[in-house]
């Protein structure tokens, strides 16, 4: 049953696009309300659908990419668009195959910049073993839009035997993170040269397919997700809702880069809400957790860690602090703003 929802806002604000609750409600109560069908699952990274009679399901995912600035240490919007799309297929258990690309380019963008972006995109495609098989470009009137937006759709194939899903999560399961949290969000923030800040931090943007492939045949593997917009706290919320229980994260266990910690302190941000673009959060039965950790490390993720667990209790995300206290990690309300307090 679709229930009517009345939006508290009259206008779209940036909060409707930040991965938090406002955006979820916009998608659930507007997009999904109208576009609902047997295959559309707004919570999934990729859609599985029947297509042929062979062993594989066709997997489709799509993502739009906007970054300011277009280029940042560790990547640019071109490579990011490929990695982001490939990652959504990968965490769904699929092997990425084909991509489509839409480019919305702002009037006035330097061609040399575009050249670099598309080149990085091509490199990322080669590295991920995918091909862009359809594309389109539109030029936009000059705005404050930031130069270029990409929309990438990915098509992959997944063995029908694979049985992952957020609804497979159980109380007692362990939560793993394949590397440090928030590097991408923080690196982009630093690249903006806003607030007079700078640093040497690099985005973690990369394909996670090697990691997901390594985990795929682990019997206790329940669910994987790439913690992008909204960071690990947002994914933890999605898990808590799905299991209607408590997700407990352990502050001292979560790998966080020193520079990310520092920037978060300076601006009053919370690093758990900062985006990653090359990490996997995986939920694994407790008995397989150590094996999962070993496999992640074996796939090159030296900082991978078991960062928490799923518990009975109220639907919430709790952070156990270093001092043994507890703190609620609220659902992301809005884009972070620099604070003085």
């Amino acid at each position: 049953m679709i229930t009517e929802h009345s939006f508290s806002d009259t206008y779209i604000t940036l909060a409707h696009g930040n991965g938090g609750r406002f955006m979820r409600e916009l998608i659930e109560h507007l997009f999904a309300k109208y576009l609902d069908n047997a295959w559309l699952d707004t919570r999934a990274d990729a859609a599985a659908m029947p297509f042929d009679e062979s062993d594989f399901e066709l997997m489709i995912t799509t993502d739009g990419f906007t970054v300011d600035p277009l280029e940042f240490p560790g990547g640019n919007i071109g490579s990011l668009a490929i990695h982001g799309t490939v990652n959504d297929l990968a965490v769904a258990g699929a092997t990425p195959r084909y991509l489509s690309l839409n480019a919305f380019i702002e009037e006035g963008l330097e061609i040399a910049v575009l050249d670099r972006l598309i080149r990085s995109m091509a490199e990322a495609c080669r590295e991920c073993g995918v091909d862009i098989v359809a594309g389109d470009t539109k030029v936009l009137r000059r705005g404050q839009g930031g130069g270029v937006y990409f929309a990438v759709t990915g098509v992959g194939q997944r063995n029908r035997s694979i049985n992952l899903g957020i609804d497979k999560i159980q109380t007692g399961d362990c939560i793993l993170l394949s590397g440090t949290a928030g590097d991408h969000g923080c690196a982009v923030l630093l690249a903006r040269e806003q607030f007079g800040l700078s640093g040497t931090l690099k985005s973690d943007a990369a394909s996670v397919f090697p990691v997901t492939r390594a985990l795929l045949d682990l019997p206790g593997l329940r669910f994987m997700r790439d913690p992008t917009r909204g960071g690990i706290a947002t994914v933890a919320h999605e898990m808590a809702s799905a299991v209607a229980g408590t997700v407990k994260l352990v502050e001292t266990a979560i790998p966080i880069n020193e520079q990310v910690k520092t920037v978060a302190e300076i601006l009053g941000y919370d690093p758990y809400y900062l985006a990653c673009e090359g990490r996997v959060m995986a939920v694994v039965g407790a008995g397989d957790a150590e094996e999962a950790l070993k496999r992640m490390r074996g796939a090159g993720c030296s900082e991978a860690a078991i960062i928490g667990e799923v518990q009975d209790g109220r639907t919430q995300v709790i952070l156990e602090t270093a001092l043994g206290g507890e703190r609620i990690l609220e659902e992301l309300e809005d884009d972070p703003l620099p604070r003085i307090c």
Binding site: E320, T321, A322, L323, G324, G325, E326, R327, C341
Partner: peptide, 16 residues
């Protein structure tokens, strides 16, 4: 000081 209040809350001091 809101900063105090925030540190208290971030560190979970009330429950500790």
């Amino acid at each position: 000081c809101g900063g105090h209040e925030r540190s208290i809350s971030m560190a979970g001091l009330r429950s500790a």
